[in-house]
Design a protein around this nucleic acid. Structure first.
Lengths: 158, 158
DNA sequence: GAACATTGTGTATGCCATTCACTATGTATA
DNA sequence: TATACATAGTGAATGGCATACACAATGTTC
């Protein structure tokens, strides 16, 4: 639990690094949501669509666990997605309680288009940077992400 | 407007970089909101408190412009912050229409504590990394952020 | 003094997310 | 087999964030 100690806090070369990370995260999310909105999706609904796109037809319960929200919430999200024609609820073949969430053709098409769009943007965003720098950037993100969850669980346990 | 072109999309060394950036952003925001929640603040309310902490007493209109939301929304946020004792509304000395949002002693104390906490965590998050790597990480974030706004405005203008 | 702009807020609406209660179904147990 | 328990989905109610529209009070300009 120790290790959370002032190591670089007084170094003048890194003014408020975390603050800039926050700004970066906000910027990224804003960009992401703008792209989604252009295709008629919100962040929350897109998460559902993306999971189904990746993992195939799934139970709402499974989606809730994957996203980390209440089952009730997923019901509402799927309600919206069904109304706007992105997904469909079909009966589970073995469990009569459960429903499988399935992409419609439209849903699949939009998701594929979205993925392609992000792929294009991604290439532009990192264009001109040496491969080594991009690789290290990703590595640093991963490391920070790992430590973030450590800190989060440390806060959890007070 | 060109330049958004497939440059690295087919390079196997960078699988879905943007996807990982999205995950990173989500992780950061989740961490940030957890910290704020520990001090009784939400992201939206914390933004207001932070701006007042940094920029001194301000008009609600100014806050709305700084955050990029409706004036009506700021009214609601300040309502909540006032009720929970973080800020106070005082009359503007020159403009009788306007109200200045001011931190209470409690608000100032909580904000200072929060800043200190994030400072500590920041030191931990990047501990052990060579200064050069951290500097380059920040530089890359800045560059990507700049290009993100370019892409966003490009989307804006269709 | 009249026309216009600005500041804040009431009302209504919508999305995201939660809790609690409930039905229908599945599973295990005595 | 009957009973108890667990699971999947949803109705009802609540709360935060954010918007649009309308409006009163005040400031500014001509």
């Amino acid at each position: 639990m120790n290790g959370i100690h002032n190591v670089r806090g007084d170094c003048p070369e890194f003014p408020a690094v975390l603050e800039r990370v926050f700004a970066f995260a906000a910027s990224v999310q804003q960009y992401m949501e703008a792209g989604l909105a252009g295709h008629g999706l919100s962040r929350a609904r897109a998460t559902v669509v993306w999971l189904v796109y990746r993992g195939g037809p799934q139970t709402q319960r499974a989606l809730a666990q994957a996203i980390g929200v209440t089952a009730r919430n997923v019901t509402a999200l799927v309600d919206g997605l069904e109304e706007s024609g992105f997904v469909r609820r079909v009966a589970h073949p073995e469990d009569r309680r459960a429903l499988l969430v399935q992409l419609t053709d439209q849903g699949r098409a939009v998701t594929a288009g979205l993925a392609a769009e992000y792929e294009r943007h991604s290439a532009y965003l990192f264009a001109g940077l040496p491969d080594e720098q991009v690789r290290q950037f990703v590595a640093t993100m991963d490391m920070v992400m790992g430590r973030l969850t450590q800190v989060a669980t440390a806060i959890e346990g007070r």
